[in-house]
Simulated scan of single mutants.
Amino acid sequence: MPRPKKVSDFDVLNAALEVLTEKGAGFTLSDVASRVALSRATLIQRFGDRDAILHRMARHEVDTTRAWLAELPVNRGKDNLWRFLVEIVESMGSGEGFSARVAIAALEARDPILRACANERYQLVQAAIAARLTDHQHAEEIAVHLHALIAGATMQWVASDERVPLPTFVLERLETAFKWLPID
């Protein structure tokens, strides 16, 4: 009978995310192993290589996003959509550790599995935005553009000298565009 795991896969994935935040995309299995007090060989046995851990992290993020969105009420109308967008933006946190998100985006650009997971996550968010629009004939297109505005504003925040919390920065930009939306 196999020995019980002292460190869960979830703990390993969280540690890998922490290491990615600290060291960037060049982190190693040894870095992760050290963080969770396991041997590199144990990580290889459980996960395979570093890319396999990244793929599991991405899959976990998709599953977490799906579960989180499923828990939220689907109330339609412009005011309810705005509240939902605020919730999405605030869920990103203050921006501390956002460098990991940038490193992950760089990895997603190069790795087809990571890119597919990112696309699936984006599709989930966009569908959730569209679901909160009234029966607008362009709900999907509006959702794609609102999501793109959020994503673009987060990248602007990274490059900005303005050191306000990430949600403040993003919501200021989103609010301006939101006012112009042709929805009720």
Rank of each mutant, 00 (worst) to 15 (best):
E172R: 15
V170G: 00
R46W: 12
Y122W: 12
G152A: 05
L114Y: 07
L149Q: 15
D161Y: 05
G26P: 06
Y122K: 06
Q126M: 12
E71G: 07
I129M: 09
L20D: 01
R132C: 04
A16M: 07
A16V: 02
L29H: 12
K5M: 01
K179Y: 01
L85D: 05
L13H: 06
R66I: 10
V19S: 03
S94L: 03
V89P: 04
V36T: 06
L85P: 09
T134G: 11
D184W: 02
D9V: 08
R110M: 11
F98H: 08
R163Q: 10
R66M: 08
N75T: 14
E87T: 15
L13F: 09
M155D: 05
S99T: 10
P112I: 05
L72H: 06
P167V: 00
R50G: 06
H138Q: 14
V102D: 02
E18D: 13
R66E: 15
E162P: 04
A159L: 15
K78P: 01
R3C: 00
R3N: 02
K78N: 01
R110C: 04
V36E: 02
P2K: 14
L81A: 04
A37E: 13
A33D: 00
R132M: 02
L149S: 13
A143F: 00
L174V: 04
G97Y: 13
R110G: 05
N119F: 14
Q137A: 15
V7L: 01
V12R: 08
K5C: 03
S30E: 11
M1G: 08
E172V: 11
N80P: 04
T21Q: 12
E175S: 15
W180T: 14
Y122C: 13
I104N: 04
K5H: 05
D49E: 06
L149H: 13
G77Y: 00
A131H: 01
D31C: 00
F98L: 05
R173M: 05
A15I: 11
H138D: 14
M155G: 04
R66T: 12
I150L: 10
R50H: 04
L69G: 03
L38S: 07
A100W: 00
R121C: 07
L181I: 00
G93V: 03
E120T: 13
V102S: 08
F84M: 02
H55L: 02
S34H: 11
R83K: 14
F84Q: 05
E108R: 08
N75W: 06
S160T: 04
R35T: 01
P73I: 05
I129W: 00
P182C: 10
H136K: 06
N14Q: 07
V144G: 03
S34V: 02
A131I: 00
A105L: 13
E162I: 12
D135S: 08
Q137G: 15
D9T: 11
E61C: 09
E141K: 15
K78Q: 08
I183T: 04
G48V: 10
D161W: 09
A130H: 04
E90I: 00
E162L: 13
A109D: 09
T134M: 06
R173D: 03
G97N: 01
N14K: 10
A153S: 15
D49H: 10
A159N: 11
